[in-house]
């Protein structure tokens, strides 16, 4: 490739002036994305673990079926469909939520379904003797759950949980479709303002910087789980 074409490509895809002008806006979006990502992960893990525990605890077949149904429905529908449904359909009954809140709610609920599945699978993998041993020492069901079963179940499914959390962070990009100015949304806006793809390149670099370490962490966790 000739020097001229090379600098032309860089000028188009990574224009220093445009980087300088758009980066404050995009960096603000990074903060928003991280904040929403963290909130979604916390809410999703808490709700998902609670659901799995409830499913394990309850004797009611109906309740169990309801939890399974909740999980299945959320696993079967595209996140974007759920997001658009919540954002565009609710105003018809005069419930109007902002794009940020809608993104947070939808992604948390979706993540909770996947986490429930992971934690449940972890609980099921544990030998029955674990609960029996804990109960035999006089611990209550909840104490056994909190100190013996859940720590092991979460540990067992840690690689899958990490992967689902990475997916949840990536799904924040869907917020751009309903006007949430997270990284992708603000980059797209800037890109069309300047008629130049540099903000999109910047956006891609930011995602790599944000998520690549998490992907490496999940690879490490999988590797560790594999040799144990």
């Amino acid at each position: 490739m000739s020097q001229a074409a090379d600098s032309g490509l860089i000028h188009t895809f990574f224009n220093a002036d445009i980087v300088r002008q758009t980066s404050p806006m995009v960096m603000e979006a990074v903060g928003q994305t991280i904040a929403i990502g963290v909130l979604v992960i916390v809410a999703g893990i808490l709700l998902g673990t609670a659901l799995a525990t409830w499913r394990f605890h309850t004797q009611s077949r109906v309740l169990r079926a309801l939890i399974v149904g909740y999980v299945d429905v959320l696993r079967a529908m595209p996140p974007l469909v759920i997001l658009i449904l919540v954002y565009f359909a609710l105003p018809y009954v005069n419930i109007s939520i902002g794009s940020v809140l809608a993104t947070f709610l939808c992604l948390s609920v979706i993540l909770s379904a996947f986490i429930e599945e992971c934690v449940w699978s972890g609980i099921m993998t544990l030998p029955k003797g674990q609960m029996e041993a804990a109960r035999s020492t006089g611990m209550s069901w909840w104490q056994s759950m909190r100190h013996v079963i859940l720590p092991q179940a979460l540990r067992l499914s840690l690689p899958q949980i990490t992967n689902r959390c990475i997916a949840a962070i990536k799904n924040t990009a869907l917020g751009s479709v309903i006007g949430f100015a997270e990284i992708l949304g603000s980059a797209q806006a800037a890109s069309s303002d300047y008629a130049n793809p540099t903000p999109l390149t910047l956006c891609a670099i930011l995602y790599i910087g944000l998520i690549y370490p998490l992907v490496l962490a999940s690879r490490y966790l999988e590797h560790r789980a594999g040799i144990r």
Partner: peptide, 23 residues
């Protein structure tokens, strides 16, 4: 593998379709 696992699918879709016309 790790590189492409690090991108939201939508970012890839947008990048490929909106950035390629510039070249």
């Amino acid at each position: 593998v790790d590189f492409f696992r690090s991108f939201p699918q939508l970012v890839l879709v947008i990048f490929v379709s909106f950035a390629t016309p510039f070249i």
